[in-house]
Design a protein around this nucleic acid. Structure first.
Length: 743
RNA sequence: GCGAAAGUGGCGGAAUUGGUAGACGCGCAAGAUUCAGGAUCUUGUGGCCACAAGCCGUGGGGGUUCGAGUCCCCCCUUUCGCACCA
């Protein structure tokens, strides 16, 4: 090291981020510094942050998600990894269509205009985006492959069409999107009529085929919270399916987790929508049953599923036969039984299930204990205060009477199977993924309906099925594609006869399930990706974004990759090896930021006032990243002052030198402690302590310089290391000072 | 109701493995500079106490230990998740 200070180039003496930041951003772009290319000699690192929806304005939440992710990607790059950090837009979706209806702008125009604006804002972050890899999900060259994947899923039996209930307004005579149904009484947003559920043929993906695979997190390092959310969402229960029969002989399969209580079933309950309700209802009960069913159909799921609600139901007049003891038991309908879980029918065992117990008490139905839990038993159950749900010895249970609690379920299941009354079964809360949207601004589902041949896939070479631009906005609630004068009419690819295109589009979560693959080669025309890029870069090494997607995007994308793996398209079955979630940034009043509250923090203004580096550093400093917290306008000034101090540390002349081997030793010690801590904390996404360690080092260097060590080797080393460690956080400042020092 | 996590100054938050609690920053106070304000710099800043000494102090109560923010038990509070899932 040269102990003499270098002659300093003419340069502004004050730190002016607004002047240096655009200059370095241009320079990095000109040098193609962050364009990542395949390099087998280096360790690759695919760093991914969730792609934004092009709402038209980048808010502070985007900065909070993206800039610390960028800092970590930069840290990895400085450690020698070949880092790819791409960006793109999740560009299909409802807001574009709403803008079209409200303001008469075409969704395409609205979307691409917003993308332009957001690209500009994204550039001000000073992030190491590899713009060559940018992908926009509404580009035909993108959705061509979204459609292609749909066809692959169809070919492999993972896509299917089935009737499913949708919200329907009986007055407007149309289906409604979820957002168009309002209020507790679930009324139509246009005419205030309460909506009803209507069955409509829609497309599904068989995500339930992967339910057990999705419960296995052993290959990925994802936060516990997300794993719990997904596990609960999938909701796996083990038990048995047992087939009851109506008196007329119609089978009624039921699912139970407590087959050991079969002998205690004193009635059955069907969901009001259950297809057998019609058949079992007696003439005398028909009126009461119809009324109850209609009433239920109007209720929202939330109302229906409120646990504290008093249980209601109606007897159908029909009876079923319990297959284990041939007992004749009444069949009821009640809305506490859900058509969407299990088989939509239950055996009710009031003695050992609290819900059945409450129902039985209300309607004076028999309660018969068949499990001895050690509590004093009351013969016929009439005096039980509540259901006993614990395991215990089976009593009054025919051939299995006396079976101890630990073996009760296993033995009963074996007995059921031997006697062909049912079988071991697993039930999930997770349902198949409904991907049909009665909307325009999405990827058209590439299927053709032929009256002769049934649903036919659009032939691959003719993809993409392009969205027509000339669309009329009618307030129908149905896909505008349906009303296009010509678009849907095509020849059947199989028989050549007249046929119609599917007019629904795909859920945008389909587009975002695979975007990390399109980033590899966004303009590749021979497939969804360039296989060489796939081989080198995937899977994603680190994924960052909000936890609000835990049971949507983050489940869908795992399903998607597992499906691709099963089809042999990718060699792994998890898309992202490591996941980290940032918290939420609140307004200065500790409330959620919202325009109506007026507590929104605009990053553009902050950049103008303090520079991107200060915004980046403050977002990393003010709270634990996973936790988030309220914004502070004075807090960012503190961080800005720190950057000013780093600036003057490098730029200002040092005072007269004094030799101090002791002081140098202490400084080196501090430096190496800092290096160790900063490395460890970057590794663990603990950005707040990265910054505080850097502040401490800065303060120590300032103190050392005042003490006369400003020209010592230890000081020069310290400043150099400080700039290197600051670079991921405040890249523009670090570049400028590095250049200033003539490095 | 069930499950999980967390409670540290006026505030955001630090404290590898049990080893000087409160790093770093905000705020506040005093001083310097300034016509003034702002900005900047210096010093101080957990509580009690005039100061020092000293004592107290990591939600509350008990315990283990030479030593507890950290480990164990009970209670309180907050946040998050699930919530008729048969």
């Amino acid at each position: 090291m040269d102990p003499q200070p270098k002659p300093r180039p003419e340069r502004a003496e004050r730190y002016r981020p607004q002047e240096i930041e655009p200059r370095w951003q241009r320079r990095w772009a000109d040098d193609r510094l962050y364009e990542a290319s395949i390099d087998p000699a280096r360790k690759k690192m695919y760093c991914l942050t969730m792609l934004p929806y092009p709402s038209g304005d980048l808010h502070i939440g985007h900065w909070y998600a993206m800039t610390p992710s960028d800092a970590r990607a930069r840290f990895k790059r400085m450690q020698g990894a070949n880092v790819m950090f791409p960006i793109g837009f999740d560009a299909f979706g409802l807001p574009a269509e709403n803008a079209a209806i409200k303001r008469n702008v075409h969704p395409k125009e609205w979307t691409y205009h917003n993308i332009q604006a957001m690209r500009r804002q994204l550039r001000t972050m000073g992030a190491m985006w590899d713009w060559r890899r940018e992908a926009v999900s509404s580009d035909p060259e993108y959705y061509r492959w979204t459609q292609w994947f749909f066809l692959k899923l169809w070919e492999h039996g993972l896509a299917y069409r089935k009737e499913a209930p949708v919200d329907f307004c009986p007055s407007c005579n149309t289906t409604l999107a979820r957002e168009q149904v309002q209020g507790d009484d679930r009324h139509c947003e246009r005419c205030d009529t309460p909506v009803i559920k209507k069955r409509l043929a829609q497309w599904f993906f068989r995500i339930t085929n992967f339910a057990d695979a999705l419960l296995d997190f052993s290959k990925i390092d994802w936060p516990e919270r997300v794993r719990t959310l997904q596990t609960n969402w999938i909701g796996r229960s083990e038990g048995a399916e047992v087939v009851f029969k109506t008196e007329a002989g119609h089978p009624i399969p039921i699912f139970t987790t407590r087959p050991d209580t079969l002998w205690g079933a004193t009635f059955m309950v069907l969901a009001p929508e259950h297809p057998l309700v019609e058949k079992v209802t007696s003439a005398e009960q028909r009126a009461a049953v119809s009324e109850y069913v209609e009433q239920t159909l109007r209720q929202s799921d939330i109302q229906r599923e409120a646990a504290d609600k008093e249980k209601t139901g109606v007897w159908t007049g029909g009876y079923a036969i319990n297959p284990v003891n041939q007992e004749r038991i009444p069949i009821w309908i009640a809305d506490y039984v859900l058509m969407t879980y299990g088989t939509g029918a239950i055996m009710a065992v009031p003695a050992h299930d609290q819900r059945d117990f409450e129902f039985a008490r209300r309607y004076a139905l028999t309660v018969r204990p068949v499990i001895d839990t050690g509590e004093p038993l009351v013969g016929d159950g009439a005096a039980m205060p509540a259901a006993t749900v614990e395991r215990g010895t089976m009593i009054d249970s025919g051939p299995l009477t006396g079976t101890p609690g630990e073996q009760a379920i296993a033995r009963t299941v074996a007995w059921i199977e031997q006697n062909a009354l049912g079988k071991r079964a697993v039930s999930y809360r997770l349902h198949d993924w409904l991907i049909s949207r009665q909307r325009y601004w999405g990827a058209p589902i590439p299927m053709i309906h032929c009256a002769m041949c049934g649903p036919q896939p659009v032939p691959e070479p003719t993809l993409p099925v392009l969205l027509p631009d000339d669309i009329e906005w009618r307030p129908t609630g149905e896909s505008p594609l349906k009303y296009h004068p010509t678009w849907k009419y095509v020849a059947c690819p199989s028989c050549g006869g007249g046929a119609e295109r599917e007019t629904d589009t795909m859920d945008t979560f389909m587009c975002s399930s695979w975007y990390h693959y399109r980033y590899l080669s966004p303009h590749w025309n021979d497939g969804p990706w360039d296989p060489r890029e796939l081989e080198y870069w995937t899977p994603v090494d680190i994924y960052t974004g909000g936890i609000e997607h835990a049971t949507m995007h983050l489940i869908y994308t795992r399903f998607f990759t597992k499906a691709l793996h099963r089809m042999g398209l990718v060699p792994f079955d998890e898309p992202m090896l490591q996941l980290r979630n940032q918290g939420t940034i609140l307004g200065e009043d500790s409330e959620k930021m919202s325009k109506s509250r007026g507590n929104v923090v605009a990053p553009d203004k902050l950049v103008a006032a303090y520079g991107a580096d200060a915004v980046r550093a403050y977002l990393m400093f003010f709270a634990r990243w996973e936790q988030g917290g309220p914004w502070s306008s004075t807090g960012i000034e503190g961080v800005s002052r720190w950057l000013q101090r780093v600036w003057s540390l490098v730029v200002d002349e040092a005072p007269a030198a004094t030799a101090s081997p002791e002081g140098e030793r202490a400084l080196r010690r501090r430096l190496h402690q800092t290096i160790q801590r900063v490395t460890r904390d970057f590794e663990g996404f603990e950005f707040n302590t990265v910054i505080s360690s850097l502040m401490e080092l800065t303060n120590a260097l300032i103190a050392a310089r005042s003490a006369g060590l400003g020209t010592s080797a230890a000081f020069v080393e310290g400043v150099e290391a400080l700039l290197l460690m600051t670079a991921p956080v405040a890249p523009h400042l670090a570049e400028e000072l590095w250049a200033f020092q003539g490095k």
